[in-house]
């Protein structure tokens, strides 16, 4: 159930240009499923910042975020021992299939973090997993060590080398696999067009409350207006419209 937690910062480090990894201390595993997110209260800012979940361990909540504005800049300056008021878990996560299958995780840039937690969970449940991550350049690469440690099949695409993840998927002949994706809208749109009919996309939106009350993040879908924070952030491919 969603609630407010006061979580001390255990560590924080810059892992790529503009990208930070943040570890928060939890009493027992944080009760979130892959694809759900948390909303962090940033000192000095009114609205919380929604951040996806990279991983959950017995006593840690691991988040990865990009410094995109003033709020995340303040967050990046916070030190171990400081406490973050954390609202979560929020939203609906990814839904893994019941029977074991070969699944494709497709991420772009700062959309890659929730797919790490999802890939781990999918492996635990006995699925075969292939991970395709796209970044601007090799210097922007995230999670190579984590993927290596998981022993999962993974491939990277770099804009600087003239290939995006969708092209990578096609080159590897993986376009029939059910996909789980998070990344920039143009990537998700191209993926939904080129990929399997069975896909789930996690979206990003500016949010007000993060828990459904303000309707500040509603999008139009084939199921009517849906809140990215509440009915999302993960939507199945067939309900998404690509008007925006």
């Amino acid at each position: 159930m969603t609630s407010l937690f006061s979580l001390p910062i255990l560590s924080q480090q810059r892992i790529a240009p503009g990208i930070y990894s943040l570890e928060l201390s939890t009493e027992g595993p944080f009760p979130a499923r892959p694809g759900q997110f948390v909303d962090l209260k940033i000192p000095g800012k009114m609205l919380r910042r929604p951040i996806s979940i990279t991983d959950i361990t017995e006593d840690r909540l691991i988040l990865t975020y990009r410094v995109a504005g003033e709020g995340t800049a303040i967050l990046s300056g916070m030190k171990p021992g400081e406490v973050l008021e954390t609202l979560g878990p929020l939203g609906q996560g990814f839904v893994l299939p019941e029977e074991s299958s070969h699944l494709l995780m497709v991420g772009g840039g700062i959309g890659t973090p929730p797919l790490i937690y999802l890939a781990k969970e999918a492996l635990r449940q006995g699925h075969q997993v292939t991970v395709l991550f796209g970044f601007r350049s090799p210097a922007d690469t995230l999670f190579q060590e984590e993927l290596k440690a998981m022993g999962v099949d993974y491939h990277f695409a770099y804009d600087s080398e003239g290939e995006n993840v969708v092209q990578l998927m096609q080159r590897l002949g993986l376009d029939d696999l059910p996909f789980f994706a998070c990344g920039p809208m143009p990537m998700l749109k191209a993926l939904c067009k080129a990929g399997s009919s069975d896909g789930q996309c996690s979206l990003e939106a500016r949010m007000g409350c993060g828990f459904g009350a303000c309707m500040g993040c509603s999008i139009k879908t084939r199921n009517g207006m849906q809140r990215v924070c509440k009915e999302g952030p993960v939507f199945s491919k067939e309900v998404l419209l690509w008007e925006t």
């Binding site: 800012k45 009114m46 609205l47 939106a205 500016r206 949010m207 007000g208 303000c214 309707m215 500040g216 993040c217 509603s218 999008i219 139009k220 207006m225 925006t244």
Partner: peptide, 14 residues
């Protein structure tokens, strides 16, 4: 349906 996104902005007072 309401307005398109973004629908939310912030300022120091709210």
């Amino acid at each position: 349906e309401g307005n398109p996104l973004p629908r939310i902005a912030e300022y120091e007072g709210g």
